[in-house]
Simulated assay, not measured.
Amino acid sequence: MPPDPSAPAGDHPLFPPFDGPRAFDQIRADLDAFRPAILAVCARHGLSTGGLSAFSHGTNVVVANDADQIIKLFPPFLRHQFEAERLSLTRFHTNIPAATPELLWQAELDGWPYLVMSRLPGRPLEEAWPAMGSTERVAALARVGEIMRAAHALPTSGLEGIDLDWDAFVERQIAGCEARHRRMGLPEHLVSQIPSYLESARPLLPRSVVPVLLTGEYTPENLLATQTDEGWRVTGMIDFADACLGPREYDLLGPCLFLAAGSAELQRALLGSYGYDLTAPGPELRRRLMALALLHRYSNLKFQLRLDGWESQVSSLSELEQRIWPL
C-alpha cells in the first residue's frame, strides 16, 4: 500500500513550526517552508507540481502551479477564513458579472484546512491602475458597482455561519475605535475627535439590517483587470476569506478609499452604477460612509486612503469626510 501523502514522514512534519499569528505572517510566503504540505496536497488530488510559486501578499499560504491551479492553506487559527471563502466561492461563481475562481477541492491536512481552486487570468487592478487613463478608470469603478450590486442581490440562505451579527459587531467596533486608530498611526488631532464624531453618526449607522453577502475586499489587490482592444477592463475578483453577511454600504469602502478617493467623478461612477440616486446623494451618505470607514474591522486609513497629503491637509474628521466623498 502506498504511503498516505498527508502523513508526516518520520521527523519531517508537513508544516513548519511558528509561534503565533505574527510569526506565521513572517513565513507564510516562504515556499520552501510549506513545500512538504503543498506536495502532499498535490499528491492527494493529482495536481501538477511544476512551476510552484508563492504569492507574497495576503493573509494565508497561497501557491500557484503551472496548471493554473491555486492551493490555499489556512492555519488552524484562521479556520473562520476558510469557512468564509469556501461558502462564498460557490455562491459567487458564475452568479456575478465577473469571473471568480472555481472551487475544485476542499479538505484538511494535519489540522490545516485548504482549498484548491482555478487561477484566473488578468493582473491585479493595483498593477494596472497607474497605466489606466481617466476614461478607463471611470469605466472600472462603474464595473465594480455593477459587480457589487449583483453580489448583494444573491441569496444568503445557508451562509448564516459567516453573519457579522451587525448590531453587536458595530458596538464592539465603536468601543475599540479610538484605540485602534491610535495604534494605526492616525494623526492625534483626528484620533481625539473619534468619540464625538461617532456619536454624531450613530443615528445614521445601519441597524437591524437585512444582510447581504459582502466581500469587504473590493480592493485593487483583489480585483483583476485585463487589457482588451478597448482598453483595461475589470474582469475578475479573487480572495473571499473575509466574506461575511452585513449591510451593503460596508462593501463600498474599499473602492471609495483605495481607488476613488477624492474624485467626485470616480465616486459617482461607482455609486451611480450600484444604483444610488446621484441627483441628491446628501451629506448623510458621506457621514455614514466615513463612520463605517472608521469602524471597519481592518480600518487603517494611513494605508487604505489613496489621497496624497491628506494627513497634513485636514483639521477634522468632518473635513476628511468631505475630501474623500466630494459628492
Rank of each mutant, 00 (worst) to 15 (best):
L214Y: 06
L292R: 01
E221T: 07
L109A: 12
P101T: 05
Y114Q: 00
L39G: 02
A168G: 11
G282L: 12
E311A: 15
M132S: 13
Q322C: 12
V116C: 06
V210S: 10
M148N: 04
I174K: 00
I71R: 02
I194Q: 05
A151T: 03
D25L: 01
E136R: 08
L39I: 14
P220A: 12
L141Y: 02
L141A: 05
A128D: 02
P326R: 06
F74D: 03
E265H: 04
D165T: 10
A128F: 04
P2F: 04
F55N: 00
P8I: 02
S6I: 07
L294K: 03
T135Y: 09
S312Q: 15
R207C: 15
A139D: 09
L87F: 02
E217V: 02
F82N: 08
D68A: 14
L39K: 06
L266A: 01
P220E: 09
M184I: 09
E199G: 12
G185N: 08
Q81T: 00
Q69W: 11
A241F: 03
H80Q: 13
L186K: 06
T135M: 13
E230R: 15
G309L: 15
G275S: 10
E126A: 14
S315R: 14
L305E: 05
V63C: 11
R28F: 01
F15L: 06
G111L: 12
F82E: 04
W129G: 08
P75V: 05
R172L: 10
S196K: 09
R233E: 15
H296V: 00
L186E: 04
L47F: 10
P195R: 11
L295N: 07
L307S: 14
R180S: 05
V170P: 09
E83T: 14
L73M: 15
E284W: 00
L104I: 15
T59R: 06
S48T: 12
G262V: 03
V63M: 09
A29C: 08
